[in-house]
Write a protein that binds this DNA or RNA. Structure first.
Lengths: 149, 149
DNA sequence: TTAAGTGCAAAGGGTTTGCACGGTC
DNA sequence: GACCGTGCAAACCCTTTGCACTTAA
């Protein structure tokens, strides 16, 4: 997860004290390449400092969300998952087999949404587009031992 | 909420017993023009029979969802809200001022989603598009019969 | 020094479930 | 008469919160 600036700067800029737990939690976020939920993140930080309470993880996540540093997503009926808000807007493909999240962006879809909202007399505050998917079976040649059956 | 058939038929077709609570809950659903959640639905049915437990409402909703009669939606981080699954697929505009839900459909967006999923090597299982909106100050409301396609 | 941050445990909201009783088929 | 459905209360999961203690600034 990429942030605009380093952790100390991020805290200073938002009026947050740079505490031990905070540093570890934000470092774990920065090193995440996925979209972890609070429990998973807590698992990661307690490997470094087992004393960190899950309440602190929840508080830090909420705080960073309020400051606009993180974005919160709820896929299906699962727990909230987080990603950096400091990147271009995008939507998500969710691989239902693995839970993996793939980011994508479609200007065309964005434009159509604007148009639909306007046509109904609204302006968009935010939106959420999630496509729940399964891997396509690759068309493949049958291996030798599967032929001629 | 419109169902394909009457309540008795709906139950029989899905192997469900037509009990008193069930009849009242399904009648309340049929008469709903909005997208109620379990608590709101419970409020409505207890006006007719105050003895109906909220657990029964939850069980009935889950059952009907599993049978493919209802669709479950979670808007924002609110409670699950339900609508008939026996209608054409559509997406939702959510008026953030009132909580009202407006249905819309865009074949163009559907097509683009298919394209995106395929390009990433996936097939779509389901998707969810929610546009959170606020009324424009000089609203130009779409006529009732105007379509998005 | 002192307000912000923390750990812990308890509480919260929405939803599900175990149990014994009651009603439908 | 089976067995499904129900009411009730307790349990559940994820998340927040009250409290007393600790710590960064």
């Amino acid at each position: 997860m990429r942030f605009k600036s380093d952790i100390a700067t991020l805290c200073r800029d938002h009026g947050l004290r740079l505490t031990g737990p905070r540093r570890i939690i934000m470092k774990a976020l920065a090193e995440s390449i996925d979209h972890p939920d609070a429990v998973e993140l807590h698992r990661r930080v307690t490997k470094i400092d087992p004393g960190i309470a899950i309440a602190t993880v929840y508080r830090t996540l909420r705080l960073l969300e309020e400051k606009g540093v993180l974005e919160r997503h709820v896929f299906g009926d699962g727990p909230a998952r987080f990603e950096s808000a400091e990147q271009e807007h995008h939507d998500h493909l969710i691989d239902m087999d693995t839970g993996d999240v793939i980011e994508f962006r479609s200007d065309e879809i964005e434009r159509l949404q604007e148009e639909i909202a306007r046509r109904h007399g609204f302006e968009i505050v935010s939106h959420r587009l999630e496509i729940y998917v399964r891997p396509l079976r690759q068309p493949r040649r049958a291996p030798r031992d599967e032929r001629d059956r």
